[in-house]
Amino acid sequence: MLAPKQRRLLMALGCVLTSGVVAGCDRSTPSALDPSGPKSDLVATSWWILFSVAAAVCILVTVLAVVPMLLRRRRRQVKGGDGKRFVMICGIILPGLVLMATFALSVTDIATDASPPRPSRMTIDVIGHRWWWEVRYQGSAAVTANEIHVPVGTPVQLRLQTADVIHSFWVPEVMPKMDLLPKRVNETWLSVSRPGTYRGQCAEYCGLQHAHMAFLVVAQPRADFDTWLGRQAQDAPQPTTAEAQRGLSVLTQSSCATCHTVRGTSATGDIGPDLTHVGGRQRLAAGAIPNDFGHMSGWVANSQTVKPGNIMPPQHLSPEDLRAVVTYLQGLG
């Protein structure tokens, strides 16, 4: 018969897929099962408990459903009785016990997850925009976009807000989701246990370019982080070459300045991301493209081809002006 064969095939497939999850994760996959922080650790542990119980239940039900099909020719007569006791034991009492255990796990996890192991000494504001992330460090002038640096091993307080619609903050390897709600501040915490770069992405559908609203969490040793934060708090470095100097004047005199801020210059727009240290970021356009000269030029010239529907209009700059402005921005480390 085909049915049991199907199921055997399925089970084999299930095994292959499961082993794929365990073995096949390289560092670039934002896997929830490869955690690098206490919050995701907690979830990953709970997952394996839940997975084992769930797999046992599925196998049990599959066996109970398939065996009578295989044995159907052996049975001549139906069995009587209304089986209330069987249903009571297998359908109510046993599941009841499993569910109570699950509830205990849930309540413990909620309590563990609620507060960091140690009080956090640092607060970061994350503000969602369509379709990028604004990041502000409290007690510092540092403002960045789509890249959140944190010291490794230290709980950090997060204040999540949105400038427009609902977004959701998710870094699978580090922390489960928390929504960003209009006119509210959702407070939570985050801690990364290993240095590295972790990919996060908006998880609540927020319109046209929801797919391109990623960010990076960069966990650094304390000293490196302090250096980075000190640099970010400073104004933009002065341009050192004539080309960059020309770029600065293009930036401040064209429409760039109406939307973007470069601290220390006359560009003080507050619609798009702060560009004071844009040259030091790993990616552009909320993770959509790498941050290099070519990609940035393409983006500035016509971002609509890269991320259709974003609010930055195409910039009609001469090739020289474009090269100058991108040279300047790339120099803002």
Partner: peptide, 19 residues
Amino acid sequence: GVTGVMFAVVPFDQQVTDS
């Protein structure tokens, strides 16, 4: 059904919801 029960473990739900 069993994956539905998993969502009752709230932090797990927060990890996988909207995924």
